[in-house]
C-alpha cells in the first residue's frame, strides 16, 4: 500500500520530466540543442507565480475546467498500476470507470472552451469531441480483448505483476497490434503531432492548445500538469506492455519501467 502511494507520488512528480524528454528528442532531430530537460518544471513554477486575465464573457465554468481536469487525472492515476506494482485502488470494472473519468475531464475542458464564446475555441472543442469518439471505440476494443484474455476488467489485472508477460505468452501477435493501437491512441488523446501540434501558433490547426488559449497563470499550470499526467497515464500502459518483466526489487522495477532499457 505504502509503495503504491509512493509510486503514485512518483507519477505526479516525474510526469513533467517525461514530457520534457519529448522536447529534447524533437530538438535533437531538428538539429538544435533544445530546452533543458526540466523545462516543464520551470514552466509550471513560472505559471504559478503569475496572475491571471479572464475574458469578460466567462463564468465559473471556465475557472472550474482546469481544476476538474487535473482532479480527474489525479484520481485516474490511483487506479493505474505503475511499474508493475499493484495500484492504490482497484475494483472490478475500474478500467471503464477510469476511462469515463477522463471523459469527464474532456467534457469540462470543452465546456470551459465554449464558455469563452470564441469561435476558434469552438472549432477546437468540436475536434476534441470528434476524435475521441473513434479513440473510445478502439480503446474499448482493446478492453474487450484484455477481458477475453484475463477474465478481469481492472487495470491492475492487465498491467501489474507478471500479467503482461502472461498476455504476451497467450496472445503475442494480437498484443503487438494492441501496442501499436495504444500508441496511436496516445498520440490522439494527448494531442501530439500527426493529430495536433502542441507547438503550433495557428488557432485553426490546433485542438487542445486552442481550447486552453484563454487560460493563464495558475489555471494554465493546472491544465499543463493535467496534460503531462495524461501523457504519463497512456505511456505507462504501453511501457508496461512492451517491458513486461518483473525484477526482484520494486526499486529495480521502477528503474526498468522509467528507463525502458
Amino acid at each position: 500500500m505504502i509503495e503504491s502511494v509512493m509510486l503514485w507520488v512518483f507519477a505526479l512528480v516525474s510526469a513533467p520530466l517525461f514530457a520534457g524528454i519529448i522536447f529534447k528528442v524533437k530538438a535533437f532531430f531538428g538539429g538544435r540543442r533544445g530546452s533543458p530537460l526540466l523545462i516543464n518544471y520551470y514552466t509550471l513554477i513560472k505559471l504559478i507565480k503569475k496572475g491571471s486575465v479572464y475574458s469578460s464573457s466567462t463564468t465559473f465554468v471556465f475557472k472550474l475546467g482546469p481544476v476538474v481536469n487535473l482532479g480527474t487525472i489525479v484520481t485516474a492515476l490511483f487506479f493505474l498500476p505503475i511499474a508493475g506494482h499493484a495500484p492504490v485502488l482497484s475494483f472490478n470494472g475500474d478500467a471503464i470507470f477510469v476511462l469515463y473519468l477522463l471523459g469527464l475531464a474532456r467534457f469540462f475542458t470543452i465546456a470551459a472552451a465554449m464558455d469563452t464564446a470564441s469561435p476558434f475555441e469552438g472549432m477546437g472543442a468540436a475536434r476534441e469531441a470528434y476524435f475521441p469518439i473513434i479513440c473510445e471505440a478502439s480503446i474499448f476494443m482493446i478492453l474487450i480483448l484484455f477481458y477475453r484474455l484475463t477474465g478481469d476488467l481492472t487495470l491492475g489485472a492487465f498491467l501489474s505483476g507478471g500479467q503482461p508477460f502472461g498476455l504476451w505468452q497467450t496472445a503475442g501477435p494480437p498484443l503487438l497490434f494492441v501496442v501499436i493501437a495504444l500508441f496511436i491512441i496516445l498520440l490522439t488523446e494527448n494531442a501530439r503531432v500527426p493529430v495536433d501540434d502542441p507547438a503550433t501558433h495557428l488557432e485553426l490547426t490546433m485542438i487542445h492548445e486552442v481550447m486552453v488559449l484563454d487560460h493563464s497563470g495558475p489555471d494554465l499550470a493546472f491544465i499543463e500538469m493535467g496534460a503531462f499526467l495524461k501523457l504519463f497515464f497512456y505511456s505507462a500502459w504501453i511501457a508496461r506492455l512492451i517491458l513486461p518483466f518483473e525484477l526482484a526489487h520494486p526499486l529495480l522495477n521502477l528503474l526498468l519501467f522509467s528507463a525502458g532499457w
Binding site: G51, S52, Y54, S55, S56, S57, D214
Partner: peptide, 12 residues
C-alpha cells in the same frame, strides 16, 4: 491566487 492581480479583458 492569494494577492495576485486578476485582470479582465476580451476573449482572445
Amino acid at each position: 491566487y492569494q494577492g495576485k492581480p486578476i485582470g479582465h479583458g476580451g476573449t482572445w
